[in-house]
Amino acid sequence: MVDYGNFITALKATWMRRLIKTDTKWVKLLESILKISISEIWRNGPDYSYLLCKNLENSFWKEVLLSWLEIIEQTPLSKPQIINDNIWHNPKITIDNKSIFIKSYVNKGFIFVSDLLNIDGTFRNFDELKHINPKTNFIEYASLRTAVTTRLHTQDIHLSNLQNTLQYGPICRQESKLHWLQYQILHRIVPTNKYLFNIKKAESAVCTFCKKDEESISHLFYECNIVKELWCDVEEWIFTQFEISITSDIQSVLFGKYKNKESYKFFNLIALIVKQYIFSCKYKSNPTPNFFFDRL
């Protein structure tokens, strides 16, 4: 039986998707009326949105925000996803048991945990951050580092094992559709058939394409035999067009390839585009390489 409470919550939360996928005049008008910046919601953790709710007079948008926050809180991040979490206004990254916000770091582009890490997974040293953000000091730096590393250590995360996830941030933030899909993957809220079936919004959890196995996130974007054929064709196309030999696997497809190589950055961008194409095919037809390459 359908849980109507959860159903209504999910419907309200879908308005957040419309906000991130739309850059039109009505969004600008909404920001003007509500006196908020939509982009700040994605740049900050849940405490920021809760603060917005307290000050919002519009009951509809207050309920939309609260519904979205309820879903986020019920969807815990996996270990690799945590380094893509917000630094600021995040109740799980605290100093003196309070979430933090340091404007000088925000102004210099430090938004996500991964922004504080080097490409090899180590935390940036004080001299490096001081060069980028001259307004910081060692006490502030040490407090921030302790807050972030404590969050990682409580999840038994070893940064050196998470290098693959450090490549996606700058790429997916530049394009709203890619951003939204990668955000859903990182937070495990992609509406796969398995997810929809578990919340009683689909009749079956079986894969849309192969009609055999359960459609999880990993299956949809990589493990499905039909999708794997597409990835093989993409690898061949990359080699033919650019003479770059790259082999995809489940981890690189979902989280990206690590190391500061131009070929890996190129693969990460292509992977985002392919995943967007695969997801769009869920509601149209099976993915085909010729159609994808024509669009590309």
Rank of each mutant, 00 (worst) to 15 (best):
105 Y>K: 12
76 P>Y: 11
48 Y>D: 04
107 N>R: 15
79 K>V: 06
164 N>H: 08
58 N>D: 15
194 K>M: 04
21 K>V: 13
205 A>T: 12
148 V>K: 06
211 K>P: 09
101 F>M: 11
134 P>G: 05
277 Y>S: 11
114 S>D: 01
244 I>K: 05
127 D>T: 12
79 K>N: 08
211 K>L: 14
254 L>E: 03
114 S>E: 01
47 D>Q: 04
190 V>E: 09
14 T>P: 08
233 D>Y: 08
26 W>Q: 13
265 K>S: 10
26 W>G: 09
244 I>Y: 00
150 T>F: 02
57 E>H: 14
275 K>Y: 02
222 Y>L: 04
240 T>S: 05
13 A>Q: 00
287 P>E: 03
122 T>F: 13
23 D>Q: 05
285 S>H: 14
38 I>R: 14
249 D>C: 04
128 E>M: 09
60 F>Q: 01
181 L>D: 02
4 Y>K: 14
237 W>T: 10
169 G>F: 13
270 I>R: 12
231 W>I: 13
177 K>W: 09
194 K>A: 07
16 M>L: 07
155 Q>A: 12
263 S>N: 13
59 S>C: 07
78 S>R: 12
179 H>I: 00
39 S>Y: 02
294 D>Y: 12
175 E>A: 12
186 L>P: 11
67 S>H: 03
271 A>G: 03
57 E>W: 15
62 K>Q: 14
77 L>G: 01
86 N>R: 10
131 H>W: 12
247 T>N: 01
202 A>S: 11
237 W>H: 10
222 Y>D: 00
42 W>A: 10
90 N>S: 06
291 F>G: 14
143 S>F: 03
101 F>G: 03
76 P>G: 02
136 T>C: 04
14 T>K: 09
259 K>P: 01
257 K>P: 03
64 V>G: 02
189 I>N: 07
150 T>A: 15
14 T>H: 04
135 K>T: 11
29 L>R: 07
131 H>V: 06
114 S>I: 01
103 K>Y: 06
249 D>M: 12
80 P>N: 08
260 N>H: 09
173 R>G: 13
190 V>F: 05
61 W>I: 03
173 R>H: 15
39 S>M: 04
